[in-house]
Simulated assay, not measured.
Amino acid sequence: MIVPGAHILWTGPHRAGLRRHRDRTLDQGEYALPVEEILTCVHGAYAWRRFHGGVELVTDTFGAAYFARQGLDALYDHLGTELDALDELDIDPLFYFAAGKCYAAALRPAPFAIFDTDLYLRRPLEGLDRGGFVFAHWESTGNAVYPPVAQVPNPSGVDLSRWIFDTPAANMAVSVFLDDRHRAEYARTALSFMRGNAGPAESAPIVRQTFAEQRVAPAVARTFGVDLRPVTERFWIVENEEWDGPSHADRFHHTWHQKRVLRDYPELRLAYWRYLIEDLLWSFPETYDLLLSTPALKEAAELIRRIRSELETTGPSVLSWRNA
């Protein structure tokens, strides 16, 4: 099924961090996506176009300039800077680092899909013609990340009583809105909850971001009788930080957990680059020239050349998911 897709790039968290720390030594430096995220971004855009149709980038002026400098604007059918408007809202970007996704959901009618820059599909999403709301996977609630609704800070008193909070949390690394009423009410409620809601609280800041995004969306769907369907039945048990259920490797690749590993073990980065480059060039060999021409991938250029040569002579060597 053809569904317009979008990458969302809001640089507000980066810019806010620089402003808040300008008098300290905590300078974050020039804005840049890491090599691994650029690789997944390219793969994600190509895969969505192959499976489901057009892809756009919804960003701000700062993000648009970065993508243009890298030549990555060529990935998209359209590049918009609507997220500039988020700077005028009372939404703390360091609390609500994914607010750009909620804001973008308010701008486009269903059917419309958002998928993270660190995720790419390996096959088409199934059952989109059935309507409803499709998301990556379920996550457990009743823990420090997803406490009971009554314990989530809500100083503005946004009315949450009308929504039915009786499901796990919906991981929205990919989220496909196929019901327009659900899309609009989710976006409205999430943004209302975020406004002016960044004061001190007993819970960790992540509680408010994950609530606004990943608990409100399924609650609104349940209230409206909209069918909720995860892409994979694989279930993330938050309190144990472990997976339960069948592998999702043949459906999509998401680097969220690998990012955490790489922060702790940076010596693994080259091996992970190899995996991502091989997967990308094996599936989309036409991306080779783009990868070599992207300034931010300069340190991986020799690896890109070597992997293409190896793929042409011996085929893939690290794509074990294909045999899973």
Rank of each mutant, 00 (worst) to 15 (best):
L290V: 08
M194Y: 11
W256Q: 06
A204C: 09
F284W: 03
A170I: 02
P285V: 01
S283W: 03
M172C: 14
A184H: 06
N197F: 02
T210F: 14
D179E: 12
D250M: 13
S203M: 05
T167G: 06
R188F: 13
H254T: 07
K259L: 09
H254F: 13
V261F: 09
S247E: 11
D279A: 09
D227Q: 12
N197E: 08
D166P: 05
L228Q: 08
L262W: 09
V238A: 02
R263W: 09
A190T: 06
R188A: 15
L281P: 00
D264I: 08
F235T: 04
L276R: 00
R208I: 03
V176S: 00
E185Y: 05
F177G: 04
S175L: 06
D250T: 15
R195V: 12
E267K: 11
H248N: 11
T255G: 05
L291K: 07
A190M: 04
W273R: 08
G245F: 08
I237Y: 10
H257A: 14
V176L: 07
L268P: 05
V238L: 10
K259N: 14
F193T: 10
R274Y: 10
E233K: 13
V231L: 13
V216L: 15
N240W: 14
E213Q: 01
S175F: 05
L276A: 01
E185L: 15
F165S: 07
S175C: 15
I237C: 10
F235H: 13
A212T: 01
S192A: 15
I277V: 12
E213D: 02
V207L: 04
E239G: 08
R188P: 12
A187E: 05
D227S: 11
R229G: 02
E185Q: 11
T167A: 13
L191Q: 10
P230N: 04
V176P: 02
V220H: 09
E242V: 13
L290H: 06
D279Y: 00
Q258P: 00
